[in-house]
């Protein structure tokens, strides 16, 4: 039936969009690692990849939005799904913007901070990963959403803690100029913001899941 064909197409697009978001988290982590290891070519390659992913996510989002409106699908929860797509898109945008800042501003990061920075990155990427699982659950199995959103909250607070720890280490370092400290703090803040965006998505999912239960 035509109606089921349309919905199947939409399901596939939504899956592809979430795959793109999830992949961008992995690329982000790889990018940070290459930057810290001073593998410039590989780092720039990751930037290209995340740019490509971000524009693919945009295209998919617009296509889903258009289909939802022109074919008046899920009229009751259409607004929720659109808001969810936009908030999720913010995550990938933030990841791309942060990697670009590394490329443009090339911050000098002493080796002493590498481990903490990678730790922070891991928590952020885990939060993004659990966020995409939570969205998939919202679409297919609303009962399972809480299982994933609580992990998003967990990794987000771990990321906050790791960012705070990193900032304290930066500002207690006697070898760095104040300008360098401020510059590094700015990067810790931006990486941590990705987890905050994932938390925004989890907040929305909590409400939408209640609305979805009949």
């Amino acid at each position: 039936m035509a109606l089921f064909k349309k919905t199947k197409k939409l399901e596939l697009k939504m899956d592809e969009f979430l795959d793109t978001v999830s992949e961008s988290g992995i690329i982000f982590r790889e990018g940070i690692k290459h930057y810290l290891n001073r593998k410039v070519d590989r780092f720039e390659n990751q930037i290209e990849k995340i740019r490509h992913l971000e524009s693919r996510a945009d295209r998919l989002r617009h296509s889903i939005e258009e289909q939802l409106y022109t074919e008046t699908l899920i009229p009751e929860s259409r607004g929720d799904v659109l808001a969810l797509l936009e908030t999720t898109d913010d995550v990938i945008n933030q990841a791309k913007a942060t990697l670009l800042e590394f490329s443009v501003e090339t911050p000098m990061i002493p080796v002493a901070f590498h481990e903490e920075l990678l730790h922070l990155t891991d928590h952020v990427v885990n939060a993004v990963d659990e966020m995409t699982k939570a969205i998939r659950a919202f679409l297919k199995d609303p009962k399972a959403v809480r299982n994933y959103t609580h992990k998003v909250y967990h990794y987000e607070s771990e990321a906050d803690r790791a960012a705070e720890h990193l900032k304290r280490s930066i500002f207690s370092n006697l070898d760095l100029q104040l300008s360098e400290k401020i510059h590094l703090r700015y990067f810790a803040l931006h990486i941590d913001t990705i987890a905050d965006r994932a938390e925004d998505v989890a907040d929305r999912l909590g409400i939408y899941t209640i609305k979805r239960s009949i």
Binding site: T7, K8, K140
Partner: peptide, 20 residues
Amino acid sequence: YLMVNQLYRVVNIHLFRLDA
């Protein structure tokens, strides 16, 4: 309502397919 709710618990239906 109770039957449909029970069905919801057992069968996972995608939001878009549920719409159809």
